[in-house]
């Protein structure tokens, strides 16, 4: 039987693919998408800057941190070490932009 049975079975199946961008997929809760930064929660401990493997974070002062999202590797270290959850990962995965300046974290 092999592949013939599989192919005939597919005639009656729903398509496996989706019509992105018209149909969007739900991403799981743990998905590491764009970063969201709450500047009011930040206590200025600089742990995120020290722990970033890609050196994508520059600390200026408490509540003012630059994220270079072009360098970010979405590992989730900054969110993990943050003691006040001032940095969280959102489910936003549509990160393609036409200019480098537009690649930014969500500020709150």
């Amino acid at each position: 039987m092999g592949v013939i049975g599989e192919v005939l079975g597919n005639l009656l199946r729903k398509p496996f693919t989706r019509l992105y961008p018209f149909e969007k997929e739900d991403v799981p809760q743990r998905f590491r998408g764009n970063i969201k930064y709450f500047s009011d929660k930040c206590i200025g401990c600089r742990l995120c800057e020290k722990n970033c493997p890609a050196n994508a974070i520059t600390f200026h002062k408490k509540g003012c941190i630059d994220f270079d999202m072009g360098k970010c590797i979405y590992c989730g270290m900054c969110g993990d070490v943050c003691p006040t959850q001032a940095i969280v990962y959102t489910n936003d995965y549509e990160r393609a932009e036409t200019s480098k300046k537009k690649i930014k974290p969500i500020q709150s």
Binding site: V3, F16, V27, P28, R30, R32, Y74, C75, Y89
Partner: peptide, 26 residues
């Protein structure tokens, strides 16, 4: 045909990864 069928099954495993680790590849 086999190429597509094998890769379709692979998606099931990648879904597990995405759900538990937060990413499909890294």
């Amino acid at each position: 045909t086999l190429f597509q069928l094998f890769w379709r099954e692979r998606e099931q495993i990648l879904d597990v990864f995405e759900r538990y680790t937060g990413n499909r590849v890294h």
